[in-house]
Nucleic acid binder design. Structure first.
Lengths: 213, 213
DNA sequence: CGGCAATTTGACTATCCTCAACAGGGGTGG
DNA sequence: CCACCCCTGTTGAGGATAGTCAAATTGCCG
């Protein structure tokens, strides 16, 4: 299979939480595959406001093949392991392996769909709807990995979020204070519980879905 | 060239302004190339709020190849001409023509970049910044086609927008009233002029760029 | 010229942001 | 092992931006 040859031109790299491997605006010199961990894609305004424009999980692809500059930085949210390729090598390899390009095309189309759905959230949803949408998405994305279920409470999911409050705000286009207030509101209403800073227990998933707009 | 064979499996279709060719949520049954005109890609919340998630111009690609349902509707903003393909035919054709897939991949990657940049606008920019960004983008996109220059005023560009006020609001994640107020503010400040409903004269492009954030 | 839809304007309101103070908790060093 | 400290997150008060609702105006088309 081609994967062997592809692996040969890549090398794995370990990242610690907070470490960046690609910076906004620089020439695209490398691409990578996520092996383990969660990374964010983000852009900033000149005056420092940040918007997280994508979140990538294991098996996702990072970087901008085929020329151009990268429009967003890539930073590890958790400790992460990635398989890095020189963009030149990758480009050449891809052009010779249509099956790989096809796979990449399918992934990119899916990513574009997901990104566009997120635009509806950013442009048209209220803070409450944004938070609910976020928690629904997180429940789906973290199913399996960072998700525990207590034996006696099968409807509850305990998620370990890969985001700080500030990062959640940067995903949703809100401020950290608004995010915090929404969390405490949902907790007071019995929809979620907050066992620790990075954990959320989903008590009433249906209400979240309804509130997501 | 392969284009001949591709054209053989497609057929051109004329759309009048306001007409849709793809609806949100339906199975992806066709894809198309824009020959002439401007179309919007949009999603709606259940309660009717709309967000325009993309705008396509001549030579752009429409639709979702390779399975899946389309996450957004496609509607003509102006009268338009498109070259339509059955998705089945197109998928099969594409798989046999890596050069076409490569081209489509490059386009899709570019579209993803542009979409992500727009997320920064939706999530983090003020109404004034959104309007300025919009007018800057329009000036760039419409250079040539819907753009006139008076002989004696080379720095002014007269744009014919393919959007109504409501549609501008749906692009920017604002209300129609806010868009209208921003237009009159910019006009009062001498940055633009508004000769008619669909036209904008750019008097001071630099100020717009500065105000775009 | 009249009718209709799109746009503008105005007054008021709500949501979310800003600024500021406070609380918690996890880790470190005594 | 406990106390302290610092960072992150929470809470509060007040304010600004953009939304809502309503009315007036424009301009387009028959």
């Amino acid at each position: 299979m081609e994967l062997a040859a592809l692996t040969a031109i890549g090398r794995t790299r370990q990242l610690t939480a907070g470490e960046s491997i690609i910076w906004e605006g620089e020439d695209s010199v490398l691409v990578a595959n996520v092996i383990d961990g969660v990374l964010k894609l983000s852009t900033n305004t000149e005056d420092g406001r940040e918007q997280i424009v994508g979140v990538v999980y294991p098996s996702d692809f990072i970087g901008r093949p085929f020329g151009g500059t990268t429009g967003h930085g890539v930073t590890a949210l958790t400790d992460a392991k990635v398989c890095v390729f020189s963009r030149r090598d990758f480009d050449a390899f891809a052009r010779e392996h249509p099956a790989l390009e096809h796979k990449l095309l399918e992934r990119t189309l899916g990513e574009l769909d997901r990104t566009r759905r997120w635009m509806l959230l950013l442009g048209r949803k209220s803070a409450a709807e944004k938070m609910a949408s976020f928690l629904v998405e997180m429940t789906e994305r973290l199913s399996g990995s960072s998700c525990r279920v207590e034996r006696d409470k099968p409807n509850q999911r305990i998620l370990t979020l890969p985001f700080s409050r500030q990062q959640i705000a940067d995903v949703l286009g809100l401020t950290i204070e608004t995010v915090s207030r929404q969390f405490t509101r949902l907790k007071n209403e019995g929809v979620i519980d907050l066992p620790s800073r990075r954990e959320v227990t989903i008590l009433d998933f249906d209400t979240l879905v309804a509130e997501a707009g």
